[in-house]
Simulated scan of single mutants.
Amino acid sequence: MLLWLPAYPTFQPGWDQEEVHATFFKCISWQVEETLDAVNCPYHYFCDKTYPSNYPLLVDILVLLFTAASYLVTLVIVIMDLCSGRGRIFLSGSKRFLLPSGPVSLPLIILIFAKGPQINTIFPLSCLGPAILLMALISALSFDNGDDKDFKYTFFVASTVSGILHASLYLDSVVLPYYTGFDALMSSTFSGECESCVCRKEALVVGGKLVRYRGWSLTTFFVVGVLCLRIICKISGETYAGKFLFIKALMERFSWILITVDCVYLTLNSPPERVVLRGSAYGGIFLLIFLQVLKEACNQFTQRLM
């Protein structure tokens, strides 16, 4: 019995289930063939090209350790920031280099996403890449070192914007083939002509139709918009900054809502692979969101008492 597949009568006993699994989820080029059976097989696809084989296990371990360290640093800084009672003033210039959205970690995240299709042994980025991006977005939203001088602040935030956009694009290059293969596997039947040959009732689209999450999404653009408004408020001075503060605050709140929606969606609708690892990752993201909500509630309560 196959773990995910229905009882396809055309699935050959000699085929290796793990090999078929890898072919579908790492395929980057699906070719459509003409078919004579317009009723039962109007669209016939086979995988023409896949990503190269995975990196050694050591690479996955290093990525796992880096991700865990980045999360723990973010969690500790958020908790200390919450306990300090001083809001964002607690974040000093040195601590921001340790955050996932900082000038050290964010380039590493971009590099990891760029090589993501081959990091798929014990820490599959096709499953956990979205959680890493959400962690970087939360880091960028939560901390704003407004004490820097205008040029230094502008350069730092602009580099964060560029890094987030690049990370989102590279993440899509990892997850879109994964979601396409998931759709091809779950919404098709094997034709029996080859290991990846499937019959479909409708055309196969990039990213599939079963999971609609994208790294290059409304969530990313809202976070980028918030960062851009921070730059505008910083360089415009006190005279004009007030005109943008309301819009910035509104966009920040909506960005947090979108991040929460993405996290809930990915928890409920991701392909059923590495369930425990994926649940732990998104559980950690929910914890960061909860702490941010708690911090905002404490700030509002403190302001009303003053």
Rank of each mutant, 00 (worst) to 15 (best):
L2S: 08
L5G: 01
L5Q: 11
P9C: 11
F11R: 12
Q12E: 10
Q12R: 15
G14A: 10
E18M: 14
T23D: 04
F24P: 01
F25M: 15
F25Q: 03
W30K: 01
Q31W: 01
E34F: 12
T35M: 02
L36W: 07
D37M: 13
A38F: 02
A38S: 12
N40G: 07
N40M: 08
N40L: 03
Y45W: 02
C47D: 09
K49N: 11
K49V: 13
K49P: 09
K49C: 09
P52F: 00
P52A: 01
P52M: 01
S53F: 07
P56M: 07
V63K: 05
V63L: 04
T67Q: 01
A68R: 10
A68Y: 07
A69V: 14
A69G: 02
V76T: 04
I77H: 06
V78Q: 14
I79F: 14
I79V: 15
D81P: 00
C83W: 14
G85R: 00
G87R: 01
G93F: 04
G93Y: 10
L99Q: 02
L99Y: 03
S101L: 08
P107Y: 08
K115F: 09
Q118T: 13
I119L: 10
N120W: 00
N120E: 12
P124S: 01
S126Q: 11
C127L: 09
C127D: 09
A131T: 08
I132R: 06
L133W: 15
L134G: 02
L134Q: 11
L134H: 07
A140F: 06
A140P: 05
L141T: 08
L141A: 11
S142A: 13
D147P: 02
D147Q: 11
D148R: 10
V157C: 07
A158D: 07
A158N: 10
T160V: 08
S162P: 01
A167H: 06
L169A: 11
Y170L: 03
D172K: 04
V174G: 12
L176V: 12
F182K: 00
F182H: 13
F182D: 00
F182I: 00
D183V: 10
L185W: 04
T189D: 05
S191C: 07
G192F: 03
E193S: 14
S196H: 08
V198G: 09
K201Y: 10
G208H: 15
R212I: 09
Y213D: 02
G215E: 04
W216D: 12
V223H: 01
V224Q: 06
C228R: 14
C228E: 05
L229T: 10
L229K: 03
L229V: 07
I232C: 12
K234C: 06
A241N: 07
A241P: 15
G242Q: 11
G242A: 02
K243F: 12
L245F: 05
L250P: 00
M251G: 02
E252P: 06
F254S: 06
W256T: 03
W256M: 10
L258F: 15
L268H: 05
S270R: 10
S270Q: 13
P272Q: 12
R274P: 00
R274I: 03
V276D: 09
G279L: 12
A281G: 08
G283E: 08
G283Y: 06
L287M: 07
I289Y: 05
V293A: 13
V293T: 09
V293P: 00
L294K: 10
L294D: 05
K295I: 05
A297C: 06
Q300E: 14
R304W: 08
R304L: 13
L305Q: 06
